[in-house]
């Protein structure tokens, strides 16, 4: 690690984080420890009730500032302990997008929705105007600027929510099942946007998602959670190599990866396991060409 990187520290550092909701002895999060470096694209998956959403709420400071409960351990965002940093200060570092696009849109017009956070942080009006244009452009929804938020489709609403989070220029973007109400095309579109933000703008992306096949395709690192613990922390290809990791927590391995894994066990698939249909096609073509098919 270089001296500079050492000084900057990890984007997110979680140490022995334990959290219980009030009135419950069950640990929603159980001694979690992990670090995320700046610029990573991390996918978090796991069965319902594994603690994925609670973990995100710890990363944006809602826990412990807004949600009561027993909180142990430490969460550091960009070197700041969330316990000592207010949600509003964290809002400058961490953008959050939630599951229900309907409930997170507060303004009647798209433009005002994007402006909401900026106005709260007392950004000068001229800069707000500029940032609205930038973030809408970035998400590819400039045409929606003056539309009424109630008339948007689910996918459009979700992208407006992402634009509203991006407008605050955070270093880290947290998304809690951002595609739960979207069709497959809408899901892809949202993930394409996330990939572009991650690659071109060096944004650290943490996304909770049940759809493992899409996470495998886009994330550079997968965290699999169960009962408030991380049971696996590995790049997607390694996860595909051990499908029992997914099945043991009740998730289905992505069909493409699973097929290639089974073929590979019989020596019928060469090289690394494919993450997309395109990868698989290429791998199989090579293999069959070798065999003269």
């Amino acid at each position: 690690m270089t001296a500079e990187a050492d000084c900057a520290g990890p984007a997110i550092s979680v140490e022995k984080l334990t959290f219980c909701y009030p009135g419950s002895e069950l640990k929603a999060l159980d001694e979690l420890s992990f670090q995320v470096s700046a610029g990573e694209f991390v996918g978090i998956t796991g069965p319902t009730g594994a603690g994925k959403s609670s973990l995100l709420l710890c990363l944006n400071g809602i826990i412990p500032h807004f949600q009561d409960g027993k909180f142990h351990g430490a969460v550091k965002i960009d070197g700041c302990d969330t316990f000592d940093t207010s949600c509003a200060e964290l809002a400058r570092k961490v953008g959050s997008v939630f599951q229900d696009p309907e409930a997170q849109i507060v303004a009647p017009v798209v433009e005002e929705e994007i402006a909401f956070g900026l106005e709260n942080l007392a950004i000068p009006p001229r800069e707000i105007d500029q940032r609205i244009a930038e973030s809408l452009e970035l998400i590819g929804i400039s045409s929606l600027r003056h539309r009424s938020t109630t008339q948007l489709s689910g996918g459009q609403k979700q992208r407006v929510a992402i634009a509203a989070a991006i407008a605050l220029k955070p270093k880290i973007l947290l998304l809690d099942e951002p595609t739960s109400e979207l069709d497959p095309i809408g899901t892809m579109e949202v993930f394409e946007v996330l990939r572009r933000l991650n690659r071109e703008h060096h944004l650290t992306v943490i996304v909770v998602e049940q759809k493992v096949n899409i996470l495998v395709e886009y994330a550079g690192r997968l965290l699999i959670m169960k009962n408030g613990r991380i049971v696996c922390d590995a790049p997607p290809r390694e996860v595909l190599e051990r499908p029992e990791l997914l099945t043991s927590v009740g998730l289905r391995p992505p069909p493409v990866g699973d097929l290639a894994f089974k073929l590979k066990q019989r020596g019928l698939y060469p090289g690394a396991l494919p993450l997309t249909v395109g990868d698989a096609y290429q791998g199989l073509s090579e293999c069959w060409a070798d065999k003269g098919i």
Partner: peptide, 26 residues
């Protein structure tokens, strides 16, 4: 009530009620 709670969380993550604020259009 659930929606209101989710909205409050979303507002909180965007700095609602921090202090003095600006307005885009005056």
């Amino acid at each position: 009530v659930k929606k209101a709670e989710r909205m409050a969380i979303s507002m909180e993550t965007r700095g609602f009620g921090v202090g003095k604020r600006t307005n885009l259009h005056v």
